[in-house]
């Protein structure tokens, strides 16, 4: 049975609840933007229900602990095309085996999930490293970034613990949402841009504090000065800092002249 869901984690858990509650055997999930085969023009939508989701969530914890919860959440964040199907098949086996399947890394489903989790972990750590804040006129620190996977929710705690005494905004430009911290709490936010220019460009042009570009210059200068040319090894360099991340790295930008 083909059902549409809202592409949230709670939505996915609600689907799992329905799968058991309504004994749906061959549940397949579609995301909002996925076009439906015309045959099923009057396709049903799953209405996300937090209390159903939370019952499934607790059930997972009971049999597999926080680690399984984390595993599934991270796989969800991967947004891979087969992610829903994988999670559904895994959960079927998971509940059938009273959770033991998660302890068997050799099981094909578990091993696939673990592999994805590893990828997500790597991307999360990259974001901890590659986020570059820019200071705005208000004295806030703003970073735009476009992770391969939807990992920013995983980065929030790290940034909250580290930058406890500054306002900051971490913004995913690919998915158009972010997290804002006001020295009290972190909130999920979505920016409504008046201009049509890309956000990063908009910020750089209109919002930066007076000193910001000077510090960017200093950082770039530092980065260049700390390099040892006679040891140059671009292959290794690119392995560590893949080119697709360069546009968010201050040290990789052309010098900005005011």
């Amino acid at each position: 049975m083909l059902l549409k869901y809202d592409f949230t984690f709670e939505g996915l858990l609600t689907a799992v609840f329905m799968m058991y509650d309504e004994k749906i055997k061959d549940l397949q999930l579609l995301r909002p933007e996925q076009s439906q085969p015309s045959l099923f023009s009057d396709m049903e939508y799953i209405i996300t229900d937090d209390s159903k989701a939370s019952r499934v969530w607790k059930g997972i914890a009971k049999k597999g602990g926080v680690r399984t919860q984390q595993l599934l959440y991270r796989v969800f964040l991967s947004e891979l095309p087969q992610m829903e199907a994988l999670i559904l098949s895994f959960l079927r086996v998971f509940f059938q085996t009273q959770g033991t399947v998660v302890k068997n890394p050799a099981h094909p489903l578990t091993s696939k999930l673990l592999e994805i989790q590893k990828m997500i972990g790597r991307e999360k750590h990259r974001m901890d490293a590659f986020v570059r804040f820019m200071q705005t006129k208000e004295g806030w620190y703003v970073a735009t970034i476009a992770p391969d996977f939807n990992v920013l929710p995983l980065n929030v705690t790290h940034f909250k613990n580290r930058y406890a005494d500054q306002h900051w905004l971490l913004y995913d430009v690919k998915r158009n949402y972010g997290f804002f911290y006001d020295q009290e709490k972190v909130q999920e936010v979505q920016l409504a841009l008046e201009s049509t220019a890309p956000l990063t460009h908009h910020i750089k042009t209109f919002c930066l504090s007076e000193e910001e570009t000077r510090f960017q210059e200093l950082w770039k200068l530092y980065f260049d000065s700390t390099n040892i040319t006679s040891r140059k090894n671009m292959k290794l360099h690119l392995q560590h800092v893949p080119k697709r991340y360069w546009k968010y790295l201050t040290e990789k930008q052309p010098i900005l002249k005011k």
Binding site: F223, N233, L236
Partner: peptide, 18 residues
């Protein structure tokens, strides 16, 4: 306050010599 150290340490960038 500002900052913490987390035990692992983070490489924020890499020089061209890797």
């Amino acid at each position: 306050g500002l900052g913490n150290s987390s035990g692992m340490g983070i490489c924020h960038s890499y020089t061209e010599d890797g």
